[in-house]
Nucleic acid binder design. Structure first.
Lengths: 104, 104
DNA sequence: GAATCATTTAGGCATTTAGCTAAATACCTA
DNA sequence: TAGGTATTTAGCTAAATGCCTAAATGATTC
């Protein structure tokens, strides 16, 4: 949760998630959409990955990143619940399933 | 929106919002709940205020902070909409309406 | 194996952040 | 006005962040 909100604090990282919402993209294609260098983007990907918000898969010499919606939903709905915002909690159910890092 | 997510990136600041969800609290009472100095807390309040998430009102020698739910809801629901999370906007009940800033 | 493309790591620099103590300000009460 | 409480500002340090270029790694193809 801490790591998720930390990752969400940078506008580029939030935009990356928006781009990934409709499907996977390679690191290079993602990087081309932002006015910073590829190494800088690589750092942003690392932070998103560390938060469990995306994952990368090697495909023919490229890395395809995909969003991890459940981590994002869990964090946002969880926080909204705590501050008393109606948040459609029907998706919050899964808890330790597939990607529940957040340990570090 | 940038400022809201920036403000939400620190766990103390998120907890402050949780504490304020059920009513206003003085800066001192809030500060007593966290293991950092009062000046440090004052800095956190300033950041929350700058993001439009809280406001302070002077009352008898103290400052009572209250949460600004609409700013928080607008930012969270706005982002959730962009990443395609069902955000149940029916719960956006406009508690005290009339402060749709977000001029960031 | 060599060339090439894609991505990450390394190293460096400037800025921001989070924390502290000490001091200043503001506000209330006697 | 003086004293006391509440909060913020000032000034500092240490660490983290965000960015860069250059180099290293990995994977593909010839």
């Amino acid at each position: 949760m801490n790591k998720v909100f930390d990752a969400l604090s940078h506008p580029i990282r939030r935009e990356v998630l928006e781009l990934l919402k409709s499907g996977g993209m390679t690191a290079g294609d993602l990087a081309d959409r932002f006015p910073v260098s590829k190494p800088t983007m690589s750092g942003h990907f690392a932070k998103l990955k560390e938060a469990g918000l995306i994952q990368g898969e090697n495909r023919r010499g490229s890395v395809v990143y995909t969003i991890n919606m459940s981590t994002l939903e869990e964090a946002l709905h969880g926080f909204m619940g705590r501050v008393g915002i109606g948040s459609a909690p029907d998706a919050v159910s899964q808890r330790d399933g597939l990607n529940g890092k957040e340990s570090t």
